[in-house]
Computed example of a mutant assay.
Amino acid sequence: MESLGELLKAWPAGKSLTDQADRKLEELLADPLVHRLREKHPELDEQAVRLNLNRVYQYVTEYRNCTNCPGLDQCPNDFEGHYTLLSCDTVQERVQLHDRKVACKKMIARRNEERIKKRIRSFYVDDRALKSGYSALEILDKDPTRAEAAYRVIEYIDRTKEQGLQPNGLYLAGKFGTGKTFLMCYLLHELAKADYSGVIVYMPDFVEDLKSMMHEPAKLRETVEMMKETDLLIFDDIGAENLNPWARDHVLGSILNYRMNRKPTLYTSNYELDGLERHFSFTSKDGDEVYKGQRLMDRIRPYVDVIMVTGDNKRGLK
């Protein structure tokens, strides 16, 4: 932003600096914003404005820039996303004007959004589902057939905000493309605003990646500990993974065993609970292991509220 000193130097030759300053002083004194400032601080007389001409000029200029805001990325003010705010006091009968930089609404909103995003970690989930904006009305109106499910998710969010982390998580079951992941991302986004941390894991890719983590014990330990300790853990599309006994019993089982009675775990799946149990009871290596499937489900079934998500397949639709 051009300073008042630079502006005065650019005035046509033949006019003294004093004349230029007097002209600029008259313009500022006539500005409605300065009128309001002087009404708020009656002690701010013409002499005080003259002595603080550069501060008052910057105050007025940045206010106008903000009134016609071109967006944060094109912010013309000296300090991006901030404007000058003036205050006044009197010390030993001398009026003193003070300026400070204040973050604008757009900058505050950006910082809040960045804070929210830092509280959410995703593994193999499309980031677009987490970065998009959300509104409760959009969640409810997007597909009337899933409105009941959406209401229950919103109720869960409200309960958590009022009462703290819930003893039970949610289990969203339904066919492909009905918006289960979208609803869970909305839940994470809303609860991140309330300072809850969250992790969402796309199960098919996570289980495949575990094979390489077997040879990186430090990375595996760090990943498992994060999933154990986060406030909200979501296993997305559970049941679609190709399980092996080690991933089922030593990784998934360990995480769920730690979290039950501590923190809620949430799920999306194309299976209902009985179908998920059958899925867990079979591995590509050892075949049918009904007992181990039941054992894992004992760490899921009692700790979730089931929500059936109905509606049309929206994948591929704009």
Rank of each mutant, 00 (worst) to 15 (best):
K118S: 15
G275L: 10
A30P: 07
T84V: 10
M297H: 06
E39G: 14
Y59V: 00
G177T: 08
N77A: 09
D99I: 02
G133N: 14
Q92T: 12
K314N: 12
Y134P: 01
F235S: 01
N261G: 13
D288Y: 11
R121I: 09
F176P: 03
Y57A: 02
E289I: 04
L172V: 05
E138P: 03
F235D: 00
D127A: 14
D237F: 02
N52I: 01
G287K: 07
Y59I: 05
V91M: 11
F235E: 05
S269L: 04
N68I: 09
E225T: 15
H35A: 15
T145W: 04
L243V: 06
L130W: 05
D141Y: 11
G316T: 09
A129V: 07
P217Y: 08
E225M: 13
S122L: 01
H35S: 15
S212I: 08
N168M: 12
L25N: 01
T223D: 00
I234L: 00
G198V: 03
D78W: 03
E216G: 10
Y258E: 09
L317W: 09
G164V: 07
E62Q: 10
R146K: 13
D141P: 06
L273S: 10
H215W: 08
R221G: 15
K314T: 11
M297D: 04
N68K: 08
F79A: 06
A150L: 04
R121C: 07
E6K: 12
H250C: 08
Y258R: 07
S3M: 07
L317D: 13
L72V: 10
G81R: 03
N257G: 14
F280M: 00
E138A: 13
T84D: 04
L188D: 00
G275D: 12
V153G: 03
V153C: 06
M1N: 12
I157F: 07
W246Y: 10
